[in-house]
């Protein structure tokens, strides 16, 4: 029986197999995986999948989880409409 999917990043619906396929190709940092798969870039901004992915990388590279660099966190923490930013900046003028 084929294995059922193990969801790692639930925002972007990315499975463990998809992550391992890229690890095998040499994409072994969180930033690499993020650019390929958008993991950690959905609504929760990686707060769910971050440690799961760090763990998969750690197991693959035989290193400690704490030695796997976490992805860079950039503003903003949630989706904002451009309209809202424009209105705020017009107001500031």
């Amino acid at each position: 029986m084929p294995k059922s999917p193990v969801i790692i990043c639930r925002c972007e619906d990315i499975t463990k197999d998809e992550i391992h396929a890229l690890l095998e190709q040499g994409f072994t940092t969180f930033e690499d995986l993020k650019r390929q798969l958008r993991v950690g870039m959905g609504p929760c901004q990686g707060s769910t999948c971050q440690e799961l992915i760090q763990r998969e990388i750690a197991l693959f590279l035989h290193v400690k989880v704490e030695d796997v660099a976490a992805p860079k966190v950039r503003p903003l923490t949630a989706g904002v409409k451009l309209k809202a930013i424009k209105e705020a900046s017009d107001h500031d003028k």
């Binding site: 059922s4 999917p5 193990v6 969801i7 639930r10 769910t48 799961l52 998969e56």
Partner: peptide
């Protein structure tokens, strides 16, 4: 934030 687990059909 709560931690989650990776297992088959965890969604």
């Amino acid at each position: 934030m709560e931690k989650v687990l990776a297992f088959e059909q965890n969604d």
